[in-house]
Structures are given as C-alpha cells and as structure tokens.
Simulated assay, not measured.
Amino acid sequence: MKSLVRQGVVLTGTGSAVSETYLDNHQLNQMVVTSDDWIKTRTGISRRHLLPAQDSLTTMATEAAQKAIDMAGIEPQKLDLIILATSTPDDLFGSAGLIQARLGATQAVAFDLTAACSGFVFGLVTAAQFMRTGTYQNVLLIGAEVLSRWVDWSDRRTCILFGDGAGAVVLQASDHDCLLGFQLHTNGTQNQYLKLEFQGQEKLLVDNIRVGQGTYQPISMNGQEVYRFAIQKVPEVIEKALYRAGLEIEQVDWLLMHQANRRILDAVAERLGIPEQKIISNLANYGNTSAASIPLALDEAVRRGQIKANDVVALAGFGAGLSWGAAIVEWGSLNS
C-alpha cells in the first residue's frame, strides 16, 4: 500500500462557462410585476444567463473544466479525482462520471457533492483532505448549476435571483500549501428557509404497500431569514478561517463570497472592515448561480489579472442547508 505523506495544495488553473442566452430585468418585467430599478436596488442583479432546454449541465461543466485543465497545463489523464459540486445534476445518480468520460480523465474517480450555495467551498476543503494525505496529486473541482430548471417563473421573489453557470479549478500537490485555513458549518434546524424539496403522492402497489412518487418542487425561500442568517454568520466564519490561517483581516487582498445579493456582500464587507475595492463581484451579470458562483467569479478575476500570484483571497459560501463556510486561499501555481 502506498504510504501517505503530508503535502500541500496549490490552485493552478481556473475555467468557467455560461450560455450566451440571458434574461435581463426588462424582459423579466414582461413576465412578473417588477422593474429593473426594483431588482437592482434590492439585489444588484441586472441579468442572468439561462441554459437552453436542449443543452445540459454536463456539457457546460465539461467546458469550464477543460478551460481550467488547459490553464493548469496538465493532461486529463493525470487527474486523480473529479468533484462536481451541484444541486441540479442532469442525472439524480450523479453527473460527475459523465464529465469524467467526456474529458477523457480515465484515471480519475468522480463523484457529485451536494451542498447548494456552499458547495464549492465544501468541495475545496474535501479535495484538500484527499491531497494533504498524499492520496491524490491532481484534482478537478467543478461548481455547476442549472437553477432555471427549478425556478417558479411566476414567483417574483425568487425568479429574479437565479441563473445558470459553471466554474472549475484544478488543484495540484505541492510542497507549498495555499489553503491557509477554513471553517465549515451547518444548521439543519433552519432548512425550511431555503429548499428545493421532493413532493410525492401516495401510490398503492399491492397488499396495502404504498410508496411516494412525484418530483421536486420549485425553489422556495424566505429572503428575510436568509439575509439575516448570512450577515450574521458569514463574517463570523471568515474571521474563524482567518484565525486558523494565522492572518488578520488587513492581510486579505480580496473578498470573494457566494454571489447571492449585493446587499449581503456589502453588509458582510462592512462588518469585517473590508473596503469596497477589495470585493470581487460579478453578480450583476450572472445572478445567483449557487455552487458555480465562486469559481465563475474567481476565473474572471484571474483571467483579467485582478487576482495575482500570492494574493490572499477569502472565499465564503452560504445557503441552503442552511450551510456556510469559508476558506482562505493564496492564489499561486507550481511555478510561483
């Protein structure tokens, strides 16, 4: 058996993908009673990309993954593990395996991870545990969602928020470790505030044996409770992750949170004392893409040169579960 050795993790590649189709606030005004000004004022969102019916999450996620692999400069056959963070797979049994096949990552084990809007942060920490023990050397982490499948497009409380997208990162083993600290939490007693639940009807089979059959219902959310939860818990979890990293808030170069609502981003930054110019956000153009939101924004920031080598980035995810978590990472490569 291979001996397990302590090793570090570095992020060496990013990628993202969205559909060219988008729905802006003016178009939404034709569907529900709302307005561009009302949506922008309350959420900061101007438009959201939507995946056409004939396309799949698998195709979009594979595109984002290939871009991350190309940036990292490795061959898909060198991947040991693929984690797909998603709550909206094409196949309820999981979509990671099909992504593995399409990439030609023949040596990689692949599985889905479901933690909704915290999924990318939870996936990052999960991947790091496999790598720090020396079990795996090269890991692909994808966050991808097609939330448009599960939105009630007649409910203006939720239909204005959500979009579709995919983002990916490649992590590779190194003597250096760029996952500096993390903290994860769940409170299932608040699950009812944001959910996408199964609703079945009783079906008689035989001899008084009954099962439930049905489908999942559209997303339901108590916006006020989620906002209250986020502005209280997210600053706390970032501070705890910084403590584990041995860093002060002043040493953070960039704050990159789950892109849920601009008021949440601003409130958390204000509580932490982080200036606006350090907030990375693409919420206006994509809306809430759940597990995809952090890697999608990360990829854009890296590719435009905003995030540079050795920059310290505070990542934070929060949402359904209710779950929340933070990871403090240093952007870098094997050569930096």
Rank of each mutant, 00 (worst) to 15 (best):
M221V: 12
N222Y: 10
G223D: 12
G223C: 11
G223Y: 11
Q224S: 14
Q224G: 11
E225W: 06
Y227R: 03
Y227Q: 08
R228L: 12
R228E: 14
F229D: 02
F229H: 11
F229E: 01
A230R: 01
I231W: 04
I231E: 09
Q232I: 06
K233E: 14
V234K: 01
P235C: 05
E236W: 00
V237D: 00
I238N: 00
E239P: 00
E239Y: 00
E239D: 10
A241P: 13
L242I: 01
L242N: 00
L242W: 01
L242R: 00
L242H: 01
L242P: 06
Y243C: 04
R244W: 04
R244M: 06
R244I: 06
R244P: 05
L247C: 04
E248D: 14
I249N: 01
I249D: 00
I249G: 00
E250V: 04
E250M: 03
E250Q: 13
Q251F: 03
Q251L: 03
Q251M: 08
D253S: 11
D253E: 09
L255K: 03
L256K: 02
L256I: 05
L256E: 05
M257Q: 15
H258T: 08
Q259P: 14
Q259I: 11
A260D: 10
A260E: 07
R262C: 11
R263Q: 15
I264N: 03
A267R: 05
V268E: 03
A269R: 01
A269K: 02
A269V: 07
R271V: 02
R271L: 01
L272Y: 02
I274V: 15
P275R: 03
P275Q: 08
E276A: 14
E276R: 10
Q277Y: 13
K278G: 09
I279A: 02
I280G: 11
I280V: 15
S281L: 04
N282I: 06
L283P: 13
L283S: 11
L283M: 07
A284T: 03
Y286F: 14
G287M: 09
N288A: 12
N288T: 13
T289G: 06
A291W: 07
A292C: 09
I294E: 08
I294G: 06
P295W: 07
P295C: 11
L296G: 08
L296P: 08
A297S: 15
L298D: 09
D299I: 08
E300H: 12
A301P: 13
V302E: 10
R303C: 14
R304A: 05
G305Q: 09
G305P: 08
G305K: 08
G305H: 08
G305S: 12
Q306A: 13
Q306E: 15
Q306Y: 02
Q306C: 11
I307S: 07
A309H: 11
A309V: 12
N310D: 15
N310P: 05
N310S: 14
D311M: 04
D311A: 07
V312D: 03
V313T: 13
